[in-house]
Simulated assay, not measured.
Amino acid sequence: MSIGGRIMASQLTIGIVIAAALADSINPCVFGVLIFLMGYMLTAFKSKARLLIGGLIYIATVYVTYFLIGLGILSAAYSANLTNSLYMVAAVIAILAGILEVKDFFWYGKGPSLQIMPGGAERIKKYTYKFSKFNDKHPAFNMVLAVGLGVLVVFVELPCTGAPYLAIIGLLASGEYSNGVPLLLFYNLIFILPLLVILGLVYTGKASKQLEAWRKKHRGLMRLFIGIFLLALGTYMFWLAS
């Protein structure tokens, strides 16, 4: 990457960070898993107050786990002096992922698609079912379960949701490390905002089945928005590098 490109890329705007985090968080993969878990928690926790606490613990775990993954990638790139390589790989992945997302607007689920790890959804349901039986004897275990599910879901969803995050990490790697860490924290704060909205809707009485119906109805548009954004972001990154 040219020195000029490095200077420009280091001046990553808050607007780009916000847009990428929102594109990341409105992914149908994220919504689908969270809606399922909120439905489970509402049944398992037996009260809305405990649902709220468990949901907040789950979302906080997602925040911390997602941040630590980003920090690990960023730190490794600096330590191995691979920041330029990470930048270019992230730009390529952003464009390829964008193409697949746009494709899903027209032919949803047909051909190659960004999706959670194979068997990931079944694994999440399997673990929640097993833990639900244990919860009958030890209700407090629900809170521990919320932490475990938060970590599990982040890793299961990464193949489906990670492209915007990787692109931002690539941009951050082109600047100073000390500037990148606060922006990673901010990115993940924006990332969890839609999750908090869904939690609030379930807590105030919005049925998880209604939310899932809404997700399925609009998932194509979600994919289209994410795809257009990723194509624009990847192109922008190549332009900075030129």
Rank of each mutant, 00 (worst) to 15 (best):
residue 7 I to G: 02
residue 214 W to R: 11
residue 127 Y to N: 11
residue 85 S to K: 12
residue 117 M to A: 15
residue 193 L to Q: 08
residue 234 G to Y: 06
residue 9 A to D: 00
residue 102 V to T: 13
residue 242 S to E: 04
residue 192 I to G: 04
residue 192 I to A: 00
residue 101 E to N: 15
residue 179 N to D: 15
residue 64 V to I: 14
residue 43 T to P: 06
residue 201 L to F: 10
residue 130 K to F: 10
residue 63 Y to L: 08
residue 105 F to Y: 13
residue 111 G to P: 01
residue 239 W to S: 14
residue 72 G to P: 09
residue 177 Y to V: 08
residue 181 V to S: 07
residue 139 P to N: 01
residue 74 L to W: 00
residue 23 A to E: 09
residue 43 T to N: 15
residue 168 I to A: 01
residue 154 V to F: 05
residue 145 L to K: 02
residue 8 M to T: 08
residue 79 S to P: 05
residue 2 S to T: 10
residue 114 L to I: 08
residue 140 A to N: 08
residue 31 F to I: 14
residue 242 S to V: 09
residue 204 T to W: 11
residue 197 V to W: 09
residue 158 L to W: 08
residue 8 M to D: 12
residue 207 A to W: 11
residue 136 D to C: 01
residue 19 A to K: 04
residue 230 L to D: 01
residue 190 I to A: 05
residue 220 G to H: 11
residue 182 P to S: 04
residue 182 P to N: 09
residue 148 G to C: 07
residue 128 T to F: 04
residue 76 A to W: 09
residue 84 N to W: 02
residue 73 I to L: 12
residue 141 F to C: 00
residue 4 G to C: 10
residue 57 I to N: 03
residue 130 K to S: 09
residue 120 G to C: 07
residue 55 G to H: 07
residue 150 G to E: 03
residue 19 A to E: 01
residue 123 R to H: 14
residue 125 K to D: 04
residue 184 L to I: 14
residue 152 L to Y: 08
residue 225 F to D: 07
residue 228 I to P: 08
residue 233 L to N: 12
residue 155 F to G: 01
residue 128 T to S: 06
residue 240 L to H: 02
residue 68 L to F: 12
residue 133 K to I: 10
residue 99 I to M: 05
residue 112 P to I: 12
residue 116 I to N: 13
residue 30 V to I: 12
residue 105 F to N: 02
residue 44 A to E: 03
residue 136 D to H: 08
residue 22 L to P: 01
residue 222 M to A: 15
residue 208 S to T: 14
residue 209 K to C: 04
residue 188 N to P: 09
